[in-house]
């Protein structure tokens, strides 16, 4: 099993970062050995699609469980499709969170806990014509 915790710093003592998609660090932990790897979130500054990007990032690294503060609807759906169990509303340090998880005192969620936030790029959308043909 591999747990992913969103954290403000790269250590087990770091406080939980309540943001999922834009958290500062992901900490991947084996709960049996408490061995961990801290990776800065490559999408922490992303303006759009951060939750989806973060979901893909942790799923690709084999996480089965996420411990965080809040997840929005896009991230929730993506994590679900990635087969990840989501636990939210967690505070304290990373090691506290993992201990609570091991003690079975956390409840997983079955719906998103943060409102939708659309950091939408001002895409031009698909161009269809090639300018206007006007006879002269």
């Amino acid at each position: 099993m591999k747990i992913c915790v969103t954290a403000q710093g790269p250590t087990l003592e770091a406080p939980i970062d309540p943001r999922f998609g834009r958290c500062a660090n992901f900490i991947f932990i084996d709960p049996d050995t408490m061995k961990f790897e801290a990776i800065p979130n490559p999408g922490s500054m992303a303006s759009g699609g951060a939750g989806i990007q973060a979901s893909q990032f942790i799923v690709d690294r084999g996480a089965n469980v996420v411990l965080t503060g809040h997840v929005g609807p896009n991230a929730y759906n993506a994590l679900n499709a990635g087969g990840v169990t989501v636990y939210v509303g967690i505070s304290g340090s990373v090691s506290d969170a993992v201990n609570q998880f091991k003690a079975g005192s956390l409840q997983s969620v079955s719906s998103p806990t943060a409102p939708a936030h659309m950091g939408m790029g001002g895409g031009r959308g698909r161009g269809r014509g090639q300018g206007r043909g006007r006879g002269s």
């Binding site: 989806i52 990007q53 893909q56 499709a81 990635g82 087969g83």
Partner: peptide, 15 residues
């Protein structure tokens, strides 16, 4: 460029 696709074990999500 907009992270609109997610590919996971249990399926593909498009946003």
């Amino acid at each position: 460029p907009n992270h609109a696709i997610f590919v996971g074990k249990k399926g593909i999500n498009f946003f």
